Simulated assay, not measured.
Amino acid sequence: MSTADNRVVLTIEEAAKRLGIGRTTMYALVMTGEIRSVTIGRLRRVPVRCLDEYVTTLLDQPMTPAA
Rank of each mutant, 00 (worst) to 15 (best):
K17M: 08
L59A: 15
R18D: 08
E53I: 01
T25A: 14
V48D: 00
A28Q: 12
R36H: 11
I21R: 12
E13V: 13
V46L: 05
C50S: 13
T64Y: 03
V48M: 08
L19G: 04
R42N: 13
V48Q: 07
T39K: 15
E14L: 05
V8H: 10
L51D: 04
S2M: 09
G20V: 10
D5R: 03
A15Q: 05
V8L: 11
E14D: 14
T24N: 11
I35G: 00
G20S: 10
A67G: 11
T25L: 13
L51N: 05
L59P: 01
V38F: 07
T57S: 12
M26A: 03
M26D: 05
R23K: 14
A66W: 03
C50L: 01
L58G: 15
A67P: 15
T39H: 13
R45V: 07
L58T: 04
R49Q: 14
T64H: 08
D60G: 07
V48L: 10
V38K: 11
T25P: 00
A16Q: 03
M63H: 12
K17W: 00
R36Y: 01
D5L: 10
G33W: 05
A15Y: 05
V38L: 12
A16Y: 02
S2P: 05
K17A: 12
L43V: 11
Y27I: 10
P62Q: 08
V9T: 14
E34G: 03
R45L: 15
P65F: 05
I21D: 11
T3K: 12
R23S: 10
E14F: 00
D60W: 04
T64E: 14
I35F: 03
T64N: 06
I12R: 06
Y54T: 06
D52R: 09
T57K: 12
R23E: 11
R44Q: 14
D5T: 04
R23H: 14
A66M: 11
V9F: 08
T11P: 01
G22Y: 04
I35H: 00
L43H: 13
G20A: 09
T25K: 14
V30F: 03
G22F: 06
E34Y: 02
E14H: 03
T32K: 12
T64W: 02
M63N: 09
M1H: 07
G33I: 04
L59F: 11
Y27A: 04
D52K: 11
R44K: 15
Y27C: 07
M1W: 01
L58F: 06
R45T: 02
T64F: 05
S2I: 05
T25W: 05
E14K: 02
L51M: 08
Q61T: 08
D5W: 01
L29Q: 04
P47N: 04
